[in-house]
């Protein structure tokens, strides 16, 4: 290799240069900056400069009852939404896949449609549905002389949020799973049918194993997404009643941008990252090994 050709090879990086610049400034740098920040006490509006305080932010979080409350609210949401959305998406995808290919598009589009609505629009809409006095749901329930405090009761609020989220987020995983189902060759099912396997047996012994990589992908994405829930609760309940729906991202948002405690906000971000990483890895392990 002569010098010119080495130069020529490296000059190819000019194609990557614009992207790598953005990547470094707005992805790698914030990652390092945020981690560093989490070891500092810094109130942005106070005249004092940032002060290194080691692990104090992390210790504070572990003692902060509002942190635990927010983590618990987030965990409740994740437990409610991840299994229901994944199972619901699998069910809908399986039903649609039973149709002839050319009839699938319209149903796929309909179930996917709500995911395209901005969360502020979806939030306003569902806030009206859920309204205790003049909401749509209670207007319908009034015919059976029932009245549900969808958003104002601690026992209902998070369930209502999860219900709305089910509608809003089912489409994404459903489309991915349907694409996975479309790829399974028909003759597998035909052969199993000849051997006398019924529909349920075919689903358990052919569909699930062949779909496992796709299922793993959508469940990990769903876990990562659900732990970061923010828009729904922010728009619909604002975290209430009694903080029962104030999730961790909202608490971080308020800590950093209402109280300007940047160090503490960053530390809680990293704690949430840790929680998400642990759950994603566990999910990987469980679904890979079997």
């Amino acid at each position: 290799m002569n010098k010119k050709s080495i130069l020529y090879r490296y000059s190819g990086y000019l194609f990557l240069a614009p992207y790598l610049l953005l990547f470094c400034v707005f992805l790698v740098a914030p990652l390092c900056y945020g981690l560093g920040l989490s070891f500092f006490e810094w109130e942005m509006i106070s005249p004092f400069p940032p002060r290194f305080n080691g692990l104090e932010n992390y210790q504070e979080a572990l003692k902060d009852q509002y942190f635990w409350k927010a983590l618990w609210a987030t965990a409740r949401f994740v437990i409610m939404i991840v299994p229901t959305v994944i199972c619901g998406a699998l069910l809908v995808a399986t039903l649609i896949n039973a149709l002839p290919l050319k009839r699938q598009a319209i149903f796929r589009a309909s179930f996917f449609f709500p995911t395209l609505i901005s969360i502020s629009v979806a939030g306003i809409l569902w806030r009206w549905f859920f309204n205790t006095e003049f909401g749509l749901f209670n207007a319908v329930l009034a015919n059976f002389s029932m009245k549900v405090p969808w958003l104002s009761d601690i026992r209902w609020a998070m369930k209502s949020i999860a219900f709305m989220t089910f509608w809003w987020t089912l489409g994404g995983p459903m489309v991915v799973l349907l694409a996975g189902l479309n790829q399974i060759p028909d003759h597998y099912y035909e052969a199993a049918a000849i051997d006398g396997a019924n529909a349920v047996q075919r689903f358990i012994h052919i569909t699930i194993p062949l779909l496992r990589p796709v299922l793993l992908f959508v469940s990990v994405m769903s876990i990562i997404g659900s732990f970061q829930v923010f828009g729904q609760t922010f728009m619909i309940t604002r975290g209430g009643p009694e903080f029962s729906t104030r999730v961790l991202v909202q608490y971080i948002y308020e800590t950093a941008f209402s109280f300007y405690r940047m160090g503490y906000g960053a530390a809680m971000s990293w704690l949430l990252f840790l929680v998400i990483a642990v759950f994603s890895i566990v999910q990987f392990r469980i679904m890979r090994e079997r």
Partner: peptide, 12 residues
Amino acid sequence: PGQIFLVPVYLI
């Protein structure tokens, strides 16, 4: 997860 970038990107 995107939330980790919120505070540092704001400051940048």
